[in-house]
Design a binder for these strands. Structure first.
Lengths: 340, 340
DNA sequence: GCAAAGATTGTAATCGATTTCATATGCCGA
DNA sequence: TCGGCATATGAAATCGATTACAATCTTTGC
């Protein structure tokens, strides 16, 4: 035990051939006679040889890994996405690295650095808050084609994006509330400067004015996709002289925080106030009340981003710069007609 | 643009020294005169050089990466743990790889393979269901010291373990319910064969008999840590002729599934039935009712496992084979005295 | 003033694979 | 029987770093 792993030379020696032949027997078997191929395979079995990826990657000038930038691994929203990405890379020999950009912010030059130190071949970023400079550096190094944005993106940057139709999601939410009879609808936004915040708020505002619904400034409440911001929004609402009858939240977690605080304040959901979330994370179905929300197909989004990246790594070009995925309204128990 | 990254030779040429000197200037500056060190640094700045990690790792006979085996990335429970692990590795130059053992089960020999193909230097496994064979292979290769179990573990295997005091957690839960006046306490277990299932159930049973509480076989309900299993358990309970007045769930997610279904069935929590969870995931505080549960310090667990692995990778030996972390009872709104 | 010790630096081997180029062999048709 | 071609294989260069060893130049002690 504790013996060093067998190398290609060990195999070559055992099979009485050169290392070149061993390599060929593995990567292009048709270049090798059947007899020697058998001998090589037997030697491999015997020695327990596995090709050393560091060596192979060095020689082949690739890193053999891709990196996922996640704003916060802790959020349940990302887990389904990560699973989808993993699935997408399952058949490849790429290793999947994950970095949390919140707990470990990228230092200046770090992103381009990942490429130039041979650590990664490609990047999937779930973080739309990357520095312009960092992206420019990547573009200058000619690795722009190896970066894919997922869910979030950077405005006016030339990287492929895989995302849900956020504006449509917001419209669906508002329309659903309108159909139930709601006319006074509030919205808890995401963090300022976030592209999703903008997309969802814009969609919400557009639909609200299209339907000629009441509009009050205080009904647009700033949040940040977190439970806490939902709770804070609830406190604001509890103190409003004229309360909305429904709230469209920019994320399910926000809705949970909101509902929890509303109920604690004696306001029932959905009897007194209806609530719609966004994302449809696993919990939403089991919340009390079960949450009406906008579903994003997280697994599919992740998978698609993986496929996109793989294809641009192997074929050099991204097939389509933007893929927008449909969202879906899932009606559960947190919405009902407004109190008359 | 699109130029290949600078190599050590480029730097050497620019600084008019040999590659050896460049390497030394970086790794052991005291071996190099100040003048040349300056020149080298200047050349590095000028060329934008970054050391190629594949090459360095190959030469230094290390992989530069560690692998985390997660049963299911999708579960919110793991996110805090992963963040803790990431933190633990933040100051090192190890890359952190993550694999989901549920969506992509390890093939036979895969674990040992990760080591022998130079892909990883160490492993943190959150999966206690690894095959004995896989572990034996690792031991035979002499890499046993580079595997750390976290939260879960494999019974009778000689690897270091970082985990919470699960039995104590179960005892705390039962004692709390007993203190509130409950005498008929049910338990939804984890999946059969899981070490956590055993630890928590054992602790629960021990405390129950110590306190001389009522015991009925049907009050031990098999689950699997999931929302769905909580829902199923609730359905069983709703049909019991003699219902328990309290339920201790083996995970918060189970508790959510359970409460959601109980309420739908007209049983109020905590007025009719009290519920205690296990884990204290972020959501628990914001559930309705806020969940009484056993807190595990997930971030700290993750961090500790990372530190343990790092230390055994650098110093060769694990300081202490088992570290058991204390748990904590967090009392919220899902528990109350039983209906008289 | 000279040998020994110390400080710097360069040359070349090495890590473990892949791949180019050259060589050896066998088979074919003329 | 011999040139030509396809097939099978090996020798050696290469990827980009680190490091053992050797070489040179300074400094120090007596």
């Amino acid at each position: 035990m504790n013996q060093k792993p067998a190398t290609i030379s060990d195999v070559a020696r055992a099979a009485r051939v050169s290392t070149a032949t061993v390599s060929r027997a593995l990567s292009s078997p048709n270049l090798v006679s059947e007899r020697t191929r058998e001998a090589v395979l037997e030697a491999i079995r015997h020695t327990g040889y596995r090709v050393n990826l560091a060596a192979r990657n060095l020689r082949m000038q690739r890193a053999g890994a891709i990196l996922i930038l996640v704003p916060n691994i802790g959020k349940p929203f990302y887990s389904g996405i990560l699973a989808g990405i993993s699935d997408g890379f399952a058949e490849t020999d790429y290793a999947v690295l994950i970095t949390d950009t919140e707990s470990q912010p990228l230092k200046s030059g770090a992103l381009a650095g990942f490429f130039s130190d041979g650590r990664v071949d490609g990047v999937i970023s779930l973080d739309g808050g990357l520095h312009r400079n960092a992206l420019r550096q990547c573009a200058e190094q000619g690795v722009a084609g190896r970066i894919v944005f997922l869910c979030e993106w950077v405005e006016a940057a030339e990287f492929p994006v895989v995302a849900s139709d956020n504006a449509e999601g917001a419209r669906l939410a508002i329309r659903h509330l309108h159909d139930l009879g709601h006319r006074k609808i509030a919205h808890v936004t995401g963090p300022e400067g976030n592209v999703l915040t903008v997309a969802r708020r814009t969609g919400m505002l557009a639909e609200r004015s299209r339907l000629r619904l009441a509009a009050r400034d205080e009904w647009i409440i700033r949040g940040d996709f977190s439970l806490e911001s939902g709770r804070d929004a609830a406190e604001r609402i509890l103190q409003m002289p004229e309360r909305p009858t429904a709230v469209f939240c920019s994320a399910d977690m926000v809705a949970f925080g909101l509902i929890s605080r509303l109920q604690a304040g004696g306001v029932r959901v959905p009897e007194d106030i209806s609530v719609v979330g966004f994302d449809d994370i696993e919990m939403s179905e089991y919340y009390v009340p079960a949450l009406t929300t906008i579903r994003q197909d997280r697994h599919r989004l992740g998978r698609r981003a993986a496929e996109l990246l793989i294809s641009s790594l192997t074929h050099g070009a991204a097939p389509d710069p933007v893929s927008m995925f449909p969202v879906q309204l899932v009606i559960r128990d947190s919405t009902a007609p407004p109190p008359h």
